[in-house]
Design a protein around this nucleic acid. Structure first.
Length: 157
DNA sequence: GCCAACGTTGGC
DNA sequence: GCCAACGTTGGC
C-alpha cells in the first residue's frame, strides 16, 4: 500500500472536474515522464491513496484525497493524433505510457496551500515543496500522509 | 557519450 | 510575463 501526491493544473483538470465525472472516477492520463511512468507502472497499485494537488494556479496546494481504482494500463491518449499528449512512438502493441483510474475520496474544506506545506518540518522532504521539482506524481510517506490529513481536519483558529 | 539548445513546468 | 530548474533532443 502506497501513498502519492498527484499534480494537475486545475484549468486542465481540477478536483471539482473529478467530482462531476461518472462515479467520480476518471483516468489520469498525460504522464509523459519516464520516472513517473515507471512509478505508475511498477509501484502503483489499485487501492493506493493520493493527495490531489492543484498546480500552476492562483492558490497552489493540496485540495483533497483520491484513490487509485484500477491497475496500471496503457495510456490510450498517446495513440490519438488529435490529443495534446499524442506520442507516435507509443503504440497499442508497444505502449510507452501508462495511467491509472482515480476516484474522488474527499475534497478538503480548504486548500492546504504550498506555503502551509513549507512551514512544517515534517514535510520538508516532500518533492512538491522543492523548487524545480518536475515530477507530476511523487510518493508520500505514511508520516507525511497522516500529518497532512491532520492539517486538513484542524479547526481554523 | 558529451553537451548546447530548446521545451516545459510551475511558483511568483 | 518572468525566470529558475530540469528533462529531452540531436549534432558531433
Amino acid at each position: 500500500m502506497h501513498y502519492w501526491l498527484m499534480k494537475s493544473e486545475p484549468d486542465a483538470f481540477s478536483i471539482d472536474d473529478l467530482a462531476k465525472r461518472k462515479h467520480q472516477t476518471e483516468h489520469w492520463d498525460g504522464v509523459r515522464n519516464y520516472q513517473v511512468r515507471n512509478m505508475i507502472r511498477d509501484v502503483m497499485h489499485q487501492g493506493d491513496h493520493a493527495f490531489f494537488y492543484h498546480s500552476s494556479c492562483p492558490e497552489p496546494g493540496i485540495v483533497g484525497v483520491i484513490q487509485v481504482v484500477s491497475s496500471p494500463y496503457p495510456d490510450f491518449s498517446a495513440f490519438d493524433p488529435e490529443n495534446n499528449h499524442f506520442d507516435p512512438k507509443s503504440t497499442p502493441d508497444k505502449p510507452r505510457w501508462y495511467m491509472v483510474d482515480v476516484k474522488l475520496v474527499r475534497k478538503f474544506d480548504r486548500i492546504i496551500g504550498l506555503q502551509t506545506l513549507k512551514q512544517h518540518k515534517t514535510l520538508s522532504r516532500m518533492p512538491v515543496i522543492m523548487r524545480g521539482n518536475r515530477l507530476s506524481i511523487t510518493p508520500v510517506t505514511a508520516i507525511e500522509w497522516k500529518f497532512i490529513l491532520k492539517l486538513a481536519d484542524q479547526p481554523l483558529k
